[in-house]
Design a protein around this nucleic acid. Structure first.
Length: 489
RNA sequence: GGUUCCAUGGCCGAGUGGCUAGGCAGCGCUCUGCAAAAGCGUCUACUUCGGUUCGAAUCCGAAUGGAACCUCCA
């Protein structure tokens, strides 16, 4: 089923495309950093998860048995790097006078809701940081035992300098530690650490901190990077295949994960690091902290000065698939509008393919075309190229419908199943059904079409145009074709 | 300031040392009572300056502009 050694992926760690060979034959372990649930997800967040959803879908499509783990960070994500740093969730809870788990629940639900609208498949395991405090404490203990962390005032810090003596801190992000030393800004109140690069594995909870747990070092809470190490190791093992996340997490988050894993187990945790690029707005990355964001609801409803109208999540997903996951993509009304037209063209083609009649001969090499589609996806999930091939197929479909090309029964079948598989299964682009309108509406519109037909026969253009124009007002588009009139809602 | 990445036609956005990307818009055509919708065809490229090469938008160097990370962020 799986064609061996065909898939290549761009490994951020090596900076090269590499042939994908999983640790365990036919199985893939994939971990993707999920959100910190202290606010609503924005479209930039969504893009990353949509990218990895596509990757997950393609791996499954190829026949791999994939275990996809994506965490929810619901504790420990610090606001800043100072000693009395508060974590994001505790801060939000304090400000809104809510129980931290209320915040967590609220934004977790929002997160799931948005991803469902974008037609993402839920991960196989979605562990939470608060559900894995014990595992995190155990890893911190191991790191201390191995001499790569130190305790001070009830907090545990990772000793980056010590680690760097026998390892390479910076191997993922291409940083070298001397640069980090000389370029780190000195922040207030971080005197506790031996070096500014050291990061917290465990933080002592101060009196304002709402989320805290008992530990060998007293009441506290886990550091940001630790939960991913704990959970990926627990569910995927000490070395697994794919670790994904947004480009912005490469440093320090993923760098620290590697350091924690190596310090704890001595093993390289990840074979292939995949990083999805940013979605920008007005040329700048979307960011909660700067307020340069667009929320999914604003996109869907068009309730924002940035857009002329709302766009269906499937259209937005298609828009994202038109760019490669490793490229920066800029979000704009014009680009979305263009994609919406293209999306419609693609869907029309898919609709038309089932109504074609086969001939004895094919004028188009469908097998070669399918091969090109797989080549595109095998080349680091190049959905952009895939889509260009899909439009070639749409053209052929239209030509066959127009008797300007022909396909055999087998080719027709192959073309139909392939284009649907790539669009619906692999890219996860939903068809916004246009003909699911209630039979009552269909009856009424068909009645009006009949009346208009009579009017046209009688050359009563005034009435005929009135029917057409007033239906248009209601967003019902009449389409006069050779074989009569149809409509789309 | 340090590290890394990017610069493609009106717009979005791929890609390869020589062979059409694709989508949108524009233009032409088909269809039509006129339109719309749809379909078909088609034009406009590779930031600048050097270098390597038989040949570079594609490789190397520099300049300019932009972005990400270096502090939390997908």
């Amino acid at each position: 089923m799986i064609k061996e050694n065909n898939l290549t992926v761009y490994n951020s760690h090596s900076g090269k495309k590499e042939i994908f060979v999983p640790v365990l034959k036919n199985h893939v372990g994939m971990y993707v950093c999920g959100p910190t649930v202290y606010s609503n997800v924005h479209l930039g967040n969504a893009r990353t998860f949509i990218s990895f959803d596509m990757i997950y879908r393609y791996l499954k499509h190829l026949g791999y048995k994939v275990r996809y783990v994506r965490n929810i960070t619901d504790a420990g994500h610090l606001e800043d790097d100072s000693d009395d740093g508060e974590d994001k969730i505790s801060k939000k809870a304090r400000l809104e006078k809510l129980e931290p788990m209320q915040i967590v629940q609220h934004y977790t639900v929002d997160f799931h809701d948005v991803l469902r609208k974008f037609n993402n498949i839920p991960p196989d395991i979605e562990p939470t940081a608060t559900g894995h405090i014990v595992e995190q404490i155990n890893i911190a203990k191991k790191i201390i035992e191995n001499g790569f962390a130190y305790a001070i005032n009830g907090s545990i810090y990772f000793d980056v300098a010590k680690y760097n003596e026998t390892n390479n801190y910076g191997e993922l992000s291409g940083r070298n530690i001397e640069d980090l030393y000389s370029n780190t800004r000195t922040l207030e109140g971080q005197n506790e650490k031996k070096n500014p690069q050291d990061f917290a594995l465990w933080k002592k909870a101060n009196y304002t901190h709402l989320q805290h747990w008992d530990s060998p070092w007293g009441e506290g809470f886990p550091g940001w990077h630790l939960e991913c190490t704990a959970m990926s190791t627990k569910y995927l093992g000490e070395t697994f295949d794919i670790h994904g996340g947004g480009m912005d997490l490469k440093f320090p988050h993923h760098e620290c994960e590697i350091a924690q894993n190596k310090a704890a187990t001595g093993k390289d945790p990840v074979k292939y690091w995949l990083h999805a690029n940013m979605l920008t707005l007005n040329g700048k990355r979307m960011s909660k902290s700067t307020g340069n964001t667009l929320n999914p609801d604003e996109l869907f409803t068009g309730n924002t000065p940035l857009l002329n109208k709302g766009f269906h999540p499937a259209v937005a997903r298609f828009f994202m698939m038109q760019a490669h996951y490793r490229s920066v993509l800029d979000f704009s009304n014009d680009a979305l509008t263009a994609s919406e037209k293209g999306y419609q063209k693609l869907m029309n083609g898919i609709k038309a393919v089932d109504n074609l009649t086969s001939k004895k001969e094919s004028t188009f090499d469908v097998k070669a075309w399918v091969g090109k589609c797989y080549s595109a996806m095998d080349d680091d999930f190049n959905t952009t190229i895939l889509i260009s091939h899909l439009f070639d197929a749409v053209k052929i479909i239209n030509q066959v419908a127009d008797n300007k090309a022909s396909l055999t029964k087998d080719d027709l079948e192959l073309l139909s199943t392939s284009i649907k598989a790539f669009v619906f299964d692999v890219m996860g682009i939903e068809n916004i059904s246009t003909d699911n309108s209630s039979s009552k509406l269909e009856g009424v519109v068909n009645m009006l079409i009949e009346m208009r037909k009579d009017a046209r026969t009688n050359k009563d253009w005034a009435l005929s145009d009135k029917i057409r124009d007033e239906l248009k007002e209601l967003d019902i588009q009449l389409k006069d074709g050779k074989d009569g009139t149809t409509f789309t809602v």
